[in-house]
Simulated assay, not measured.
Amino acid sequence: MYERSVRRLEDPELVGALVGALIRAGYGRETIERALIRQAPVDLDVLAACYAQLTEAADLMAADADADVGETQAARRAA
């Protein structure tokens, strides 16, 4: 009866929040992409940029965690 326009997912903050929430919920990249694309048209460049940012952030966090573990182990050996 009524036509409504479908909103396009093109806001980087919104797409990033959606992707981040779905990753924390345990979903993989392929599942997330399919789910978002089924809900609304997605700007694929924005989606790729969000994944790149999340991957970079995860890598930095992992590197920091590894450095903290190494420092803790070195402190234990010194004591």
Rank of each mutant, 00 (worst) to 15 (best):
A35T: 15
I23S: 00
E33Y: 04
A52H: 07
T31Q: 14
A65E: 13
Y51N: 00
G20M: 02
Y2A: 15
Y27M: 14
L60R: 12
D66I: 08
A79K: 09
G20Y: 02
A78H: 07
L18W: 02
P41R: 10
E3Y: 14
A17V: 04
A49M: 06
E56M: 12
T72D: 06
E71D: 12
A48G: 01
V42D: 01
D43M: 02
Y51V: 01
L9I: 01
V46A: 01
R38D: 12
D59W: 05
R4I: 09
L36E: 00
D45H: 07
A52P: 03
A40I: 09
C50K: 01
M1W: 09
Y27V: 06
Q73I: 15
A67S: 13
A67F: 11
E10M: 05
R7H: 14
R38G: 14
D64W: 07
V6S: 10
Y27T: 05
G20H: 01
Q73D: 11
R24Y: 03
E30V: 11
L9N: 00
D68I: 06
L60K: 11
D68F: 05
G70W: 07
A17D: 10
L60M: 08
L44V: 11
V15L: 04
R7S: 14
A58C: 06
L9V: 00
P12T: 04
V69G: 03
E71L: 11
E13R: 15
A21Q: 12
E3D: 13
A49I: 02
A49P: 00
I37Y: 04
A40F: 07
P12C: 07
T31I: 12
A67M: 11
L9R: 00
M61E: 13
V42H: 00
A57L: 09
E33A: 10
E10T: 03
L47W: 00
E3P: 04
T31H: 13
D66L: 13
A79Q: 13
R24S: 10
A74R: 15
D59R: 14
D59F: 05
A75R: 14
A78I: 04
A63V: 06
G16T: 04
S5M: 11
M1N: 09
A48D: 12
V15E: 01
R38H: 12
A79P: 00
I37A: 15
V46K: 01
L36N: 01
R34T: 14
E13H: 12
S5K: 12
G70T: 11
G16D: 04
C50E: 08
E10H: 08
I23F: 03
P41Y: 06
R38S: 15
V6R: 11
R7W: 09
L44C: 04
G28T: 08
A79G: 15
L22E: 08
A67G: 08
L22I: 04
Q39R: 13
E71W: 04
M61R: 15
D11M: 08
A58S: 13
T55W: 03
E13F: 09
A74Q: 14
A48C: 01
Y27S: 11
A35P: 00
A79N: 10
D64Y: 10
A17Y: 08
